[in-house]
Write a protein that binds this DNA or RNA. Structure first.
Lengths: 145, 145
DNA sequence: TCTCTACTTGACGTATACGTCAGGTCACAT
DNA sequence: ATGTGACCTGACGTATACGTCAAGTAGAGA
């Protein structure tokens, strides 16, 4: 019934002697990033990250962790993983980042105008709902008295 | 190549003589409501509306059209069709609308707090993106000069 | 050798709101 | 008799971002 003792973090079977600080197993990486292992495998599948392999096991270096931070940030900002993938591949193949920065700027502006529209829509919806709220209140007060 | 002439609206084969104003075929109803026929069938499937039948053909009365207006309004306000369905069934089975108004009020308030949170999130995201926008701009200006 | 744990891959499931076929009926015009 | 247009009922497809098995492998300790 008791949970089996989890081993030391950093416990990569067969590699206890070369704990090299910033090399992480998938468990450690997911823990550190606050995502599930499934998510890491999913992003790899989509080509966003390419962790090294030791045998068949994935190893996450600082590079992958950095990319994951960018990915998660992109997600928070509302970009799709496809878009994020495109940015990352530009980031890789565009030495002076000019094309990259340009496209990034465009995408950013598009997203901004989307968000400003959403804000408008939400404000309107809130107004409508506040009216309905007031009406419901009045309806209930009448019945109650 | 030319589109086959659409017939008169109101042309329900076999019923040309009893055009009763507010009885509509599915084509007319979808036209009037701005939704597809598929959508009307879908909502019927989900139990939100119950158009009469003449043989196998659906007939939409004022009642159905009214319910559809409510449904579409609910959608605009961000409620799911499941929620909308619940409201409508209360509307039907709650003569003095007390329970209905109460639950409506609760749902409305929940939705309002959701929307206010979304608004917050969007405002934050907009701020972040504006920073990124400015950074991209500067990056490009440097390279360009 | 057996068992444990962590890891692997592959495949199907989830939620939402319909879109898009395929195949068939029915009344009316030719 | 045949074609035509509008309608019908399933049933599968779409998009997104993973969740959730199932079944198997590989070191390490008892």
């Amino acid at each position: 019934m008791s949970e089996p003792e989890p081993r030391e973090p950093g416990d990569m079977p067969g590699f206890e002697d070369m704990k090299q600080g910033d090399l992480k197993s998938i468990a450690e990486a997911s823990e550190a990033l606050g995502v599930t292992q499934r998510t890491l495998r999913f992003y790899e599948d989509k080509g966003l990250i390419q962790p090294k392999r030791v045998g068949s096991m994935r190893v996450y270096s600082r590079r992958e962790m950095g990319r994951m931070q960018l990915i998660l940030r992109g997600k928070r900002l509302g970009f799709s993983i496809r878009e994020i993938g495109e940015f990352l591949s530009l980031y890789d193949h565009d030495p002076d980042q000019v094309v990259q920065a340009q496209l990034m700027l465009e995408a950013t502006q598009e997203r901004l105008s989307e968000l400003r529209q959403q804000r408008e829509a939400i404000d309107q919806t809130i107004s409508e709902l506040e009216i309905i709220e007031a009406m419901s209140r009045r309806h209930l007060e009448q019945r109650e008295s």
